[in-house]
């Protein structure tokens, strides 16, 4: 992903309540965005939960497990790492991750 990154603006940082997620439609893909409290850190992973087989990850709880930030799927509570996309409970499962940046308060995603 080093070649000409195609950034798509999706929403303002303040559109996401701290410590929650939203889902954005970026080039036909469902991307789950998560905003941490008291920081400008935003993470982007696929919204599709391969264990629960539904587009729901943006609606999960953000969890800190031994320092690894994950989202717990709202369906069956599998944890997906916000950085790597790997599923903690089942190593055969993972979700895609996307580059994300803040540009003057706007969140932009490369997908």
């Amino acid at each position: 992903m080093t070649q000409a990154t195609n950034w798509t603006p999706v929403c303002a940082l303040t559109d996401i309540a701290p410590n929650t997620g939203v889902c954005a439609l970026v080039n036909g893909q469902q991307v789950a965005l998560f905003r941490l409290a008291d920081s400008e850190a935003v993470y982007a992973i696929g919204n599709y939960d391969p264990a629960g087989k539904a587009n729901v990850l943006s609606r999960g709880l953000i969890a800190d497990l031994d320092g690894v930030l994950s989202v717990a799927s709202p369906l069956y509570k599998q944890h997906y790492c916000l950085k790597s996309g790997n599923c903690q409970e089942d190593e055969t499962l993972s979700v895609p991750t996307y580059e994300v940046r803040l540009n003057e308060g706007q969140i932009e995603v490369a997908a």
Binding site: A17, P18, N19, T20, A37, G52, A54, V56, R59, G60, L61, I62, P74, L75
Partner: peptide
């Protein structure tokens, strides 16, 4: 809001 589990966060019961 960030504390609410699957159902509370949208005030509905999420189905499969």
């Amino acid at each position: 809001i960030g504390l609410q589990d699957t159902n509370d966060i949208y005030l509905g019961n999420m189905q499969k």
